[in-house]
Nucleic acid binder design. Structure first.
Length: 266
DNA sequence: AATGGGACCTGCGCGC
DNA sequence: TGCGCGCAGGTCCCAT
């Protein structure tokens, strides 16, 4: 899915397109993506509402209509949003008062839409760790010291730090020159500091270039991100390392494909 | 506490 | 060409 930089990109675009817009109708093509409440209540609860705020928390998008009314969107793996004309392939289309549509696209239909009176009380939200941009080096170091898990799955653990996924965790570890199979509490002080900086660097770069479009992900305008061309290890198995030219290797860590440079990452 | 497997879904590319 | 398999940016749930 869209990880923090992709979701942040969409969030900023939604602010421009959706603030003060009224939703006048909703077409639901696939009920399975609507998790709460039932589809009729979902539709009736939103039609006639005006968007007052757009929020991102971790990889979640939250559209606020008024006090006690929030649309919570989790794009999971293949979800994305497309603004403009009505799309045939959309799972849900929100018709706006300006004649445009906000289309919820999701090939695999693993994403989730919820309409709730609050979002902060969601079990998933309550379980989230801090945003990467809100955590200090000292706090980061403290967390790593307390964990015996491998560093790569740890970076992807939303209850530890919220927002990174399988792309940016790999990129951060490459930028910090750390082997993804290292145990978190075995990293030395320099490595921890490098990883902290690297994490912020790759996430900021991802936001700057409007995300990575490795597969079908597109931003709100239907455009691909610019970050996938800048990825140094993700999806680059057997290609030369951008630093040392040795071939990038791919391995499985915690069930997830992981690319790294065996020469640069120690 | 940490790890592994399967589940949820669809669709793509690959080897045979 | 056709088919089966593995794999895909996420998360949850269960078992060990």
């Amino acid at each position: 899915m869209p990880e923090l930089p992709e979701v942040e990109t969409i969030k900023r675009q939604l602010e421009k397109k959706m603030l003060d817009k009224k939703i006048v109708n909703i077409q639901i093509n696939n009920k399975t993506v609507i998790k709460e409440p039932d589809t009729e209540s979902f539709k009736n609860g939103i039609v006639g509402e005006t968007v007052t705020e757009v929020i991102r928390r971790a990889k979640l998008l939250i559209i606020k209509f008024k006090e006690d009314k929030f649309l919570i969107i989790h794009l999971r793996i293949s979800g994305w949003l497309l603004y403009g004309k009505k799309e045939e392939k959309s799972r849900v289309s929100f018709e706006l008062s300006d004649g445009n549509f906000l289309n919820y696209m999701d090939q695999r239909m693993l994403g989730e839409l919820k309409l709730r009176r609050d979002y902060k009380d969601l079990k998933f939200i309550k379980s989230l760790g801090p945003e990467p941009f809100d955590i200090s080096l000292e706090e980061f170091a403290k967390i790593l010291k307390a964990k015996k898990t491998k560093i790569k799955p740890l970076l992807m653990d939303q209850t530890v730090i919220a927002g990174m996924g399988n792309i940016y965790a790999q990129e951060a570890l490459f930028a910090a020159q750390i082997d993804p199979t290292n145990t978190a509490n075995n990293l030395n002080q320099t490595q921890v500091a490098n990883l902290y900086k690297a994490m912020l660097l790759v996430l900021n770069e991802g936001i700057k270039y409007k995300g990575s479009s490795v597969d079908i992900y597109r931003n709100l305008e239907g455009d691909k991100g610019g970050m996938e061309k800048r990825l140094k290890v993700y999806g680059r198995e057997n290609k030369p390392c951008v630093v040392c030219k040795e071939p990038i290797k791919k391995t499985l860590i915690g069930g997830r494909g992981t690319c790294f440079c065996p020469n640069c990452q120690k």
